[in-house]
C-alpha cells in the first residue's frame, strides 16, 4: 500500500480527523499527507515545524527532565487550542513522526490508541 493510501486509511478511522501526515523530523519535510480538504504547503510546513519543536526541538528538550530516569527523546506531543488538537507521535527508533489534526473536543485517549496502532504499519510502508 502506498504511503498516501495508508495515511488516508488511518485518517478515515480516526473520528474528527481533518489531516494525517508523515514527516521527517530531521529535515522538516512532509513525506506524505491525507486530508479532508486541500492543505497548502505553508500549512504543512508549519505542522512539520511544530512537530520538530515538540518532539525534537526546544520544547521537547524543556520537557525531557520529566522522564529523565528513562532517558530517550520525546515520543509523543499534543498541541491543543480551542479549535483543534495536533497529535505528534515519533516512530520507534526513527527520526520520523506521525501528525494527526483532530477535533478540539474529540476522544483523545481513543485517538492516541488508534494512532499508535496505525504508526507501526506506516513505518513499514514508508520504510
Amino acid at each position: 500500500m502506498a504511503l498516501t493510501d495508508a495515511l488516508e486509511a488511518l485518517r478515515s478511522e480516526l473520528p474528527g480527523c481533518a489531516l494525517v501526515a508523515y514527516a521527517d523530523l530531521t529535515s522538516g519535510l512532509v513525506l506524505g499527507t491525507a486530508a479532508a480538504g486541500h492543505p497548502g504547503q505553508e500549512e504543512l510546513d508549519q505542522l512539520a515545524g511544530a512537530a520538530q519543536q515538540a518532539l525534537a526541538g526546544a520544547v521537547a528538550e524543556g520537557a525531557a527532565p520529566v522522564w529523565a530516569e528513562a532517558g530517550g527523546p520525546a515520543a509523543v506531543a499534543l498541541l491543543a487550542t480551542e479549535t483543534e488538537v495536533r497529535l505528534f507521535l515519533r516512530a520507534d527508533g526513527a527520526a520520523e513522526a506521525l501528525i494527526c489534526v483532530l477535533a478540539a473536543d474529540g476522544d483523545l485517549p481513543g485517538a492516541m490508541t488508534q494512532a499508535r496502532a496505525g504508526l507501526a504499519g506506516l513505518q513499514e510502508t514508508a520504510g
Partner: peptide, 24 residues
Amino acid sequence: KFEELFPPQARACGTLVGAAGAAM
C-alpha cells in the same frame, strides 16, 4: 518557540509532551 507551535489567534493552549509513560 510559541509562534512555531500555535496560531496567533489561539485563545487557550494546551501542550503535552511525554516519553516512557511519563509526561508534562
